[in-house]
Amino acid sequence: MKTKKYMIALAIFGGALFTAQASNLINLDGQTTTEIKRHNFKVPPNG
């Protein structure tokens, strides 16, 4: 029974850490923009 309580506590703690890390990765401040960068490709003269 004691081991079960420790496992539940560990699962809750791990879930909290995962949630904190995921929110840092998502970056809710909107500082990053999603844009497509297009490069000019050189077309070879033969084709």
Rank of each mutant, 00 (worst) to 15 (best):
G15P: 00
P44M: 00
I36N: 08
G30N: 09
L25Q: 08
K2R: 07
L10G: 12
K37T: 02
N27V: 05
L28P: 08
A22M: 06
D29M: 10
T33G: 13
A22I: 04
L17H: 02
T34R: 15
I8W: 12
G14Q: 00
N40A: 04
N24H: 09
M1T: 12
P45S: 13
I12D: 02
G47K: 10
M1H: 15
G30W: 04
I8T: 10
I26P: 01
K37I: 12
R38C: 05
G30V: 02
G15I: 00
L10K: 03
T32F: 11
I26T: 11
H39P: 00
P44H: 02
Q21G: 03
F41Q: 15
G47C: 14
K2C: 04
T3H: 10
N40L: 10
V43N: 15
R38W: 08
A22F: 08
D29R: 08
K37W: 06
A22Y: 10
M7N: 13
F13Y: 02
I26G: 01
A20P: 02
A22G: 07
Q31D: 12
T3V: 06
Y6K: 14
T3Q: 08
F18R: 05
G14P: 00
G15W: 00
A9G: 14
T19S: 07
M1Y: 14
K5M: 13
T34C: 15
Q31I: 06
V43L: 05
L17W: 10
F18P: 01
F18T: 02
A11V: 09
T34L: 14
Q31R: 01
T19C: 03
T34H: 14
R38V: 13
I8Y: 06
R38Y: 12
V43T: 04
P44K: 03
E35T: 07
K2E: 13
P44E: 00
I36K: 12
M1Q: 11
A16Y: 02
M7P: 11
H39K: 12
A11T: 09
K2N: 10
N46G: 08
L10F: 08
A9H: 10
Q31K: 15
M7W: 05
F18S: 09
M7H: 01
A11R: 06
M7K: 11
L25R: 05
I26N: 03
G14R: 02
P44N: 04
F13A: 04
I26W: 13
G15T: 04
T32M: 06
A11M: 03
I12V: 15
Q21K: 15
